[in-house]
Design a protein around this nucleic acid. Sequence first.
DNA 1: CACGGATATGTTACCTTATCACATTTCTGC
DNA 2: GCAGAAATGTGATAAGGTAACATATCCGTG
Lengths: 165, 165
Amino acid sequence: MASPTPPANAFTQHDHAHCADTTLHKAEAVAAEKGVRLTPVRKRALEILLEEHRAMGAYEVLDRLAADGFGNQPPVAYRALEFLVDNGLAHRVRRLNAFAACMRPGEEHAPVFLICRECGEVAEAGADEVRQALLGAADRLGFHVERATVEALGLCPKCYQEAAQ
Amino acid sequence: MASPTPPANAFTQHDHAHCADTTLHKAEAVAAEKGVRLTPVRKRALEILLEEHRAMGAYEVLDRLAADGFGNQPPVAYRALEFLVDNGLAHRVRRLNAFAACMRPGEEHAPVFLICRECGEVAEAGADEVRQALLGAADRLGFHVERATVEALGLCPKCYQEAAQ
DNA sequence: CACGGATATGTTACCTTATCACATTTCTGC
DNA sequence: GCAGAAATGTGATAAGGTAACATATCCGTG
């Protein structure tokens, strides 16, 4: 049903259940190694992001958490999501005011998001050259980059083809 | 007091009044060429962004517009700002939920923002390599980019030096 | 084990950012 | 001058996000 684990994302078909499971385990390993606590709420928040396999708003995550017996106030979701982002287990997609599970926790990478404006699909692309180019440009101005946001809005392969017809 | 008009931005000193004036004229030319109307509110909104020469929240711009006799409801600011962004006369800085005048209206470019987390300064850097790298990465996945957001958070030269001491 | 500080969670209240809907005005081409 | 389109004014409200403080849990140390 799916490729073994290619770029682990993109607009390719794959077994969500499988990649979610794998990623969750990687995340647990990362947390253990960093000595941070992947507590129940945090873990559940990550699971939710992984299950849905899409960018979700904080309030949407909150609803799911509340349904699972956790608190139902905004800070519950925001704190869990902030933890995940700070520890590289999830990313914030600013253009969508949303959050998405990181597909390669632990691996150093610049998250690059490709957002389809038609179907809403969000893909996390690996793009080290983008990171390098950004660091280079910043360096030329003497700017010291700590975090970067790179997001592209456009059409995914499928929607692009459909639009061309 | 300032360099003639270097990269027109960055963390270098320059004559704001001069570059604001120049940029406003360029913006008017761009609007004329595109056949879109740089109406009073829109022009004033752009002037405000240029005068302040920094990223401003929509409500902040709204206050200034209202003080100048325009409407005082959110849509007034959002519509003017949306127009400016759509026509390449301003950019949206998502990390700050803010807007900044474009320093090179008319010139095709990927806006890259360098945001100092210490002093809040925002610089618009020219970085075609970043744009190219992003387009390349997207292309490999068959994604068709229409708009890109590239923002880096970190320390500007000045704050970096101060922090190092 | 117990106790004390650090960490995490629950909850209330509130602020900021952004959009919808609809009436009114202004512009533009004919 | 008039009809349709574009732009603006305004009220209401949705959506996103944070501050502050009380309570509970974890964890190292004596």
